[in-house]
Simulated assay, not measured.
Amino acid sequence: MTAANAAMLEQIKSGQGFIAALDQSGGSTPKALKGYGIDEDAFSNDEEMFGLIHAMRSRIVTAPCFNGDKVIGAILFERTMDGEAGGQPVPALLWDRGVVPFLKVDKGLEAEAEGVQLMKPMSDLDALCDRAVAKGVFGTKMRSVVNLANADGIKAIARQQFAEAKRIAAHDLVPIIEPEVNIKSVERAAADRLLLNEMLAELDAWDGAPVMLKLSLPTEPGLFQPLVDHPKVLRVVALSGGFVRAEACAELAKNPGIIASFSRALLEDLRHQMSDDEFNASLGGAIGEIHAASVA
């Protein structure tokens, strides 16, 4: 392990903070831009759209408050990894600030079957992992979704996530496994328990270096404590999943040992039209609130 990777590992393992999710991709980008105050009529093609979202992310990661004191990591979209901010490649800029870079690697979701949405095939995963390593990225993130408490579907999600994690770990990257339980599911509580059991089974069979888990906050506080305590789990992080920031932070604080990895809940008050002072004050307030809930 390189000195940089060892330092990143220590920051993720022991850092008192949270992981920012800045990985909105093609399908979710228009919604993210709209929340930022940029309507769809402001761009006419994907290149213009991605240019606008990159400008938003650049403004975030170069803000004075966006550093490793409270933000210990950040998950990037592929185009963000390949881009620059503040005159530096984004992964290098982040690590200079003490923020560990991760990369979203999944290609989106399959149609629902057996109550879940598996990940689409990732034929270029190995090449993408090689590029990420060359750019100084520490780990990856991949998302699938649980909509119903279907035992076969949830087992299939766990198996797929850990199979792809094995491919990622072969590149000396730390995989973040994200089987999101839809917080609007009428079977959410039962799905949480089925997912816990499948995650534990896969972890017990895992023979590699520790992985990370990104999970929806459970309906029953503390339910995922066995995952937090598992020796093969480096860190458990939580997505906001549609909760507004105040709700997400309140739910997070009920689950000791889990830290935030919020996207919408981090960005919800930021607007394109803000002055730099207004933007930095708003972002700093959000970072402070999420940090407090993560270390509570």
Rank of each mutant, 00 (worst) to 15 (best):
D192E: 02
D192H: 03
R193H: 12
R193W: 05
L194D: 02
L194A: 00
L195H: 01
L195W: 11
L195T: 09
L195F: 03
L196M: 00
E198P: 04
M199Q: 14
M199D: 00
L200C: 01
A201D: 06
A201K: 15
A201I: 13
E202R: 12
E202V: 02
L203M: 11
L203C: 04
D204K: 10
A205K: 13
A205F: 04
A205V: 04
W206E: 08
W206L: 07
D207T: 14
D207M: 11
G208S: 00
G208F: 00
G208E: 01
A209H: 10
A209F: 04
A209Y: 13
A209L: 13
A209G: 03
P210T: 07
P210D: 15
V211L: 11
M212Y: 01
M212K: 09
M212S: 10
M212T: 05
M212Q: 12
M212W: 01
M212L: 05
L213V: 03
L215Y: 05
S216V: 05
L217R: 04
P218M: 06
P218L: 00
T219L: 13
T219N: 13
E220T: 06
E220C: 06
P221A: 01
G222F: 03
G222D: 13
L223Q: 09
F224D: 10
Q225W: 00
Q225P: 01
P226N: 08
L227M: 10
L227H: 10
V228Q: 00
V228K: 01
V228N: 14
V228R: 05
D229C: 04
D229V: 01
D229R: 14
D229M: 12
P231W: 00
P231C: 09
P231K: 12
K232H: 11
K232M: 13
L234M: 15
L234E: 11
L234P: 01
L234W: 02
R235M: 03
V237C: 08
V237Q: 08
V237G: 05
A238F: 11
L239D: 04
L239A: 02
S240Q: 03
G241I: 08
G241H: 02
G242I: 06
F243T: 10
R245H: 03
R245S: 05
A246G: 14
E247S: 08
A248H: 06
A248N: 08
C249W: 04
A250K: 15
A250F: 03
E251P: 05
E251F: 12
E251V: 00
L252C: 08
L252S: 02
A253V: 02
K254T: 07
K254D: 01
N255M: 11
N255I: 07
P256C: 01
